[in-house]
């Protein structure tokens, strides 16, 4: 028994999913499906690729072409799929560790190429699948099982990283602000080029317990109360910025898309001597 949206786009036989109580992965996955539904995409063309980690289990639940690859490599597999068949609507589901640690190189290069792939980052600031180790987005001083004395690393801003590397659409919101998330995902898919949408997410089981963040509800409230639109944030006096996080659309430009350019190259060589 499920909603029309779930029964239309999910492999219901594989539900309920494996995610912990209060994990926001389900919220973000549903938001993606809602965006796909609102855009009226052809299910047979939608291809969802993931790496390894909690969020990367999402494709197994989705009734599209789905590919669960190796750790960090989703964007590289996805690049092959998209170039080989540009008619596919390629969407990558990934986590903060998957996309910015082991897969960081693939992220910046997919962005640089401006290949028409939409990447949804489920950023819960922790390695959940392996039990709560700190990731490249774990805040400084936060705790993880491999940062038992507090994290001395500085975190990445994945959205700004993608924007700087050449993504033509880069936006961040949270798993609390779901309508905004759906809107951003739709814009990302519609953007002809590389898009990255970061969903600030919650992991009550590992991040939350370790850092005494409270229940899933408390963590959702934190997202609601501390994420501020980038334009409003910029106007705040410095002392009001402390402890606040930014969300919003960080980049939205138009540039030539990689597979289009390749097809043009093929077209230009037609009739020429091999």
């Amino acid at each position: 028994m499920s909603s029309t949206l779930i029964s239309n786009y999910f492999r219901e036989a594989n539900l309920p999913h494996i995610w912990c109580p209060g994990c926001s992965n389900g919220i973000v996955t549903r938001a993606l499906v809602k965006a796909i539904d609102e855009l009226g995409l052809d299910k047979n063309k939608v291809t969802v690729v993931s790496g390894i980690g909690c969020s990367s289990r999402a494709p197994g639940y989705l009734d599209f072409n789905t590919l669960h690859t190796t750790h960090g490599r989703a964007l590289a597999f996805a690049t092959g799929l998209k170039l080989a068949n540009p008619d596919l609507e390629v969407i990558v589901i990934t986590g903060d560790g998957d996309v910015s640690a082991i897969g960081g190189n693939h992220l910046i290069h997919a962005a640089r190429r401006n290949i028409n792939i939409t990447t949804i980052v489920f950023n819960n600031n922790i390695y959940g699948m392996t039990g709560g180790q700190y990731s490249p987005t774990t805040p400084t001083h936060a705790l993880g099982t491999t940062a038992p004395h507090g994290n001395i690393d500085k975190p990445f801003d994945i959205t700004q990283l993608a924007a700087a590397a050449g993504a033509t659409y880069a936006a961040r919101t949270t798993s609390y602000h779901v309508n905004q998330l759906i809107k951003y995902i739709k814009k990302g898919i519609e953007n002809k080029g590389f898009s990255l949408i970061e969903a600030a997410s919650i992991c009550p089981t590992y991040y939350g317990r370790k850092n005494k963040s409270g229940s899933a509800v408390k963590m959702m409230e934190f997202l609601r109360d501390n994420y501020i639109d980038i334009k409003a944030y910029d106007k705040l006096p410095d002392d009001k910025k402390i402890g606040k996080e930014t969300m919003g659309e960080f980049k939205e430009i138009t540039l030539p898309e990689y597979t289009d350019e390749y097809l043009r190259l093929i077209e230009n060589l037609k009739g020429a001597e091999k």
Binding site: L67, A76, F77, T79, G80, A84, L88, Y262, A272, K274
Partner: peptide
């Protein structure tokens, strides 16, 4: 490109084989 085929120089060796697997799943001999 003369054959309508695709070449891509990836960012590293791992990405090279990953993209080739993707190409094969899309139906091309890779």
């Amino acid at each position: 490109p003369y054959y309508g085929g695709k070449f891509i120089q990836m960012e590293d060796e791992i990405a090279g084989i990953a993209a080739a697997i993707g190409g094969s799943l899309a139906g091309l001999k890779s």
